[in-house]
């Protein structure tokens, strides 16, 4: 099959950027859209042009590197599928496919389809962990965790940190991402001691990073390649509210979001 890729090209963060159309022949239905970009890039290189920059690594839907907006939808039209696993059979012969980067204030553009997602790391850094140093752990079966709780935790822990939820949200909120980590750790008995503090610290960091507020629209969950449920946002709000009522005064201050890249 043949397709036309209409791709957002932007040299660097200070460039204005624009769409450029590229026809691609010899597209195989079994190819992923990233492999289709590979084919395009090989031909661009041989023509002496600059290939399209996009992030990718594992190409099996788990590392969270890849992702761009495909025909208006983060990761494209297939549910529960990252761009790297989106095969070309989902497009029509001759179709024009629009590819553009995640667009959010908290994700500054880097080049073409690549944006800087370090803001997500900062949210984890603020409290997305259980404070247990190596060697401090008790015997693993010492604290029973019911299967239902373990499954609930795992459902939330499946987040791959790709940022599609932010790109899908009209407010560019990171509530699904943040709620997923708060839920993953907060439902487990191991995560209970820091539950209030975690929610307060992570939400505070999320706010200073420039993400918008959650408007309960649900686009995030619909776009999530791991189908993280909106429930995690409810839990985040619950933990945040409970934590606020208890008024902790030992909270860490959020770090400045514009920490220079090393």
């Amino acid at each position: 099959m043949k397709v036309t890729l209409k791709i957002w090209r932007q040299k660097n963060s200070s460039d204005k950027g624009q769409f450029v159309k590229y026809p691609v022949d010899n597209v195989d239905a079994e190819m992923s859209i990233l492999e289709c970009l590979d084919v395009l890039n090989e031909s661009l290189i041989l023509r002496g042009e600059i290939p399209v920059a996009f992030e990718h690594d594992c190409r099996e839907g788990i590392c969270g590197s890849c992702g761009f907006v495909i025909n208006g939808i983060p990761h494209g039209p297939e549910r529960a599928t990252t761009a790297c696993q989106l095969t070309m059979r989902h497009f029509k012969d001759g179709e024009e496919i629009t590819l553009e980067p995640w667009r959010a204030k908290a994700f500054p553009p880097v080049k073409d389809l690549v944006v800087n997602r370090r803001a997500l790391d900062h949210i984890i850094e603020a409290g997305g962990y259980i404070s247990v140093a190596t060697g401090q752990a008790p015997e693993a079966n010492g604290i029973p965790v019911g299967k239902v709780i373990a499954d609930q935790s795992m459902d939330a822990a499946a987040c791959i940190g790709c940022g599609a939820c932010v790109a899908a949200c009209p407010n560019a909120a990171a509530a699904l991402f943040t709620g997923a980590k708060i839920t993953h750790l907060g439902v487990l008995p191991q995560g209970e001691p820091e539950r209030d503090r975690r929610a307060l610290a992570m939400v505070a960091q999320m706010n200073v990073e420039g993400f918008g507020n959650c408007g309960n629209i649900g686009e995030c969950s619909a776009a999530c390649p791991k189908e993280i449920s909106l429930d995690v946002i409810a839990r985040m709000n619950q933990d945040y509210l409970c934590g606020s009522i208890k008024r902790r005064d030992d909270l860490p201050t959020p770090i400045s979001p514009d920490l220079a890249e090393a």
Partner: peptide, 17 residues
């Protein structure tokens, strides 16, 4: 032991083990 303490959600039996 370490991973469970960190919150790694390993598969569990109904009894919690």
């Amino acid at each position: 032991d370490q991973c469970v303490a960190q919150g790694v959600p390993f598969a569990r039996e109904y009894g919690g083990s």
